[in-house]
Design a protein around this nucleic acid. Structure first.
Lengths: 400, 400
DNA sequence: GAACTTAGTTAGACACCTTGCCAAATGTCT
DNA sequence: AGACATTTGGCAAGGTGTCTAACTAAGTTC
């Protein structure tokens, strides 16, 4: 609990209770007054009052009668989906993905577009603005209706200079003020920029393997390497927003041919690192890391060796992560986590047994695939938007 | 904020407000009604009501009039110190330290005793029981008055088996049920067992360099190596309570003579590791790591080389920690942190500039010395005991 | 269609906090 | 020394919010 807290008057009780009712409706979907009374512990008259307020604030709406049971039919309420709109944007290396959802979370429109690559920030913003208008039209709403936009991007946002650091795939965004250009995408609508891997971790926690897990880490291995950390069910960003930036970690031995004596995790364990190692060991005609994994599944001995080496690298990196964080679960995501999860989970877990002091946490491969970042952006957006909408509607205007 | 929360009736308002008043008195010390009204935002009559309740619950007491200002003299209130007692116990490798404090945090009695070493759990518990009775007598209270005892021990508590793992200095405590023996120290009083380094981190946050810092890590380097992690101002324990167990981390190169190719952090960077390396490089007549550091301060070239190597090891370990956690501050504690902080901070920070992606966090040496664990135990104990006492007194018995 | 069951509303009571006013007590100015 | 300003503490009245209990409304079951 904690001694301290804030003192309050009866007026905040009403807000607290209405927030609780709103939260229960979000959780339960279509729901009747008696069910809400049961779920919140409040009395029937209080529930009726709260619903009247929420309905007046246009946050909820009656949806019809539920008949069939004995007794009088119950009037069901639900969240008014149009009470808010969330735009989630995944600005990836090759693709840009957008999804527009209502406050309930139903996706009204979405789009996956291939990037040309090398767009300037202005070009990218203009393009995103165009796509946003298309999505908004498709959903039959207006750009001004967007409650919140959440962008998932590589790199780390420097809030002081409004720029993105460590994001080589987004040239131009390292310039001061670049992030603020995003304000133009959806005029005046609030927006949030988060690291893509962090959002993938949130997505995993909301819709994937992290559901109900208090402390877990999502390790993203693809073109680059990163990690998202969830602690106490909440994304942990670190002091500078750089928590989980493990790509520069020194790995024990590394391939002596690539780096002298010590390898940087990203250079040895990323997709390119896998292809490089396989090529060096004699494999030919590789177009991507996936070829190596397919060959390993078919029994190719060189490919198997590459996989074993990759598992060893990952395990050594995870050993450090586990020693520091002691998570309950580690999810492998990104291209390699998804494509080669089946091959890697076993050897990684085995290797970790020798490297970890106590029990090895569960190691699993993500099931969200390429959707992880977008889902995470949506999860963050929905949570924040619901708060925003509630605050605006109920806390600000408390009519009798 | 977060949509959801708990619904409540007016009765919880009173408890909330009384908790807020109680918290303000703890924060402000001797304080008048108008000051409390100002601090909490509550009205005068409400403050008076709350104080009457708190006084009836024997949690606070009037302490006299404050005169001197213009106007009527104000009646000052303060926490009743005897409303609760906290026993903090640091079970170290060489010493056992105990402190008994009242609810305000004033230490009424304390004791530092040298361990014989190798005591069985039963012997240790009997001894601690004896010392506890002495402390309690000295303070003029009874064992039954102890609200909470907090033990700081090495190793990790396995809650399922009530035993301590990874604590070689406490033989016998790895047996199931061993931790429960501590119940006998202060009959029936609640007790908590925490990792000693974790408590040192809490101490650093409450009384040391971590004050006001949201995210920081305390790296403890002494006989053993460990780390305490504070996130959002709260101790982070991890899923199994093993967060920060970095002693087994592989360090990049290590001394090839000690370990083949790769060193375990604890074996190369601990006090023994320092002495071993110095001896191997030709220093003679060393009794402890302190000798090496003194020699380095005097300009001994071998000692300086040992210090440089130590700094390198620490920096490489910290690089991993920083990559994962991105703390605002890293505090070096334990024997080496305290004794050699002045020598190590500079080289460690320099070395980290090459290893860390973004800005290097502040690296500082702890100022709490050997008191860190005990202070941390006291901080945890006071926080928890205040909660316990309040809950028992106010929430349970709400008289008009 | 009568009995039963569940849903929703209304009225009265209780709890909590606040504002406003008044009395008490102290320092300061004349 | 006495009047005045200032601050503290207490009391009464009013407002807001929730609860219980009783009552009305609207379904199902037999």
């Amino acid at each position: 609990m904690g001694i301290g807290g804030t003192a309050s008057t009866t007026a905040v009780l009403r807000v607290m209770n209405e927030r609780a009712v709103f939260g229960e409706i979000l959780k339960l979907g279509k729901v009747s007054r008696p069910e809400l009374a049961q779920a919140t512990g409040l009395s029937k008259p209080t529930i009726s009052m709260a619903l009247a307020d929420l309905e007046r604030a246009r946050l909820v709406r009656p949806i019809g009668l539920r008949t069939g049971n004995a007794g009088r039919a119950a009037l069901l309420y639900e969240i008014r989906p149009q009470a808010g709109w969330v735009l989630a944007v995944d600005v990836g290396r090759e693709f840009v993905r957008l999804a527009l959802a209502d406050l309930v979370g139903d996706i009204a429109a979405r789009r996956d577009e291939q990037r040309k690559g090398g767009e300037t920030p202005d070009e990218l913003v203009a393009w995103l603005g165009e796509l946003t208008r298309e999505l908004v039209d498709e959903a039959g709403v207006d750009v001004a209706d967007i409650t919140l936009t959440v962008y998932g991007t590589p790199g780390i946002q420097d809030k002081e200079t409004s720029s993105l650091q460590l994001a080589p795939n987004l040239p131009g965004w390292e310039r001061p003020g670049a992030v603020e250009l995003l304000a133009a995408v959806a005029a005046d609508a609030p927006y949030v920029v988060e690291n893509d891997v962090d959002l993938a971790a949130v997505g995993e926690g909301a819709y994937g393997l992290g559901q109900g897990v208090d402390h877990f880490a999502l390790v993203w291995i693809g073109t680059g390497i990163g990690m998202g950390v969830v602690i106490d069910g909440k994304l942990y960003r670190g002091a500078q927003g750089a928590a989980g930036e493990i790509s520069y970690l020194p790995v024990g031995e590394g391939d002596p041919l690539v780096n002298r004596g010590r390898g940087m995790l990203e250079s040895v364990a990323s997709a390119d690192g896998v292809v490089a190692l396989a090529t060096r060991l004699g494999m030919r005609g590789l177009t991507s890391a996936k070829d190596v994994f397919d060959a390993a599944r078919a029994g190719d001995s060189i490919a198997c060796e590459v996989v074993a080496t990759e598992a060893d690298h990952i395990a050594h990196a995870l050993a450090g992560v586990i020693a520091v964080l002691d998570p309950q679960l580690v999810v492998l995501g990104g291209g390699i986590g998804v494509q080669a999860g089946d091959l890697l989970i076993g050897p990684v877990t085995d290797c970790l047994r020798d490297l970890v002091a106590l029990r090895v946490p569960m190691i699993k491969a993500s099931t969200l695939g390429t959707e992880a970042v977008l889902l995470g952006a949506m999860a963050v957006g929905l949570t924040t938007a619901r708060d925003l909408v509630f605050e605006r509607a109920v806390a600000q205007i408390p009519p009798g």
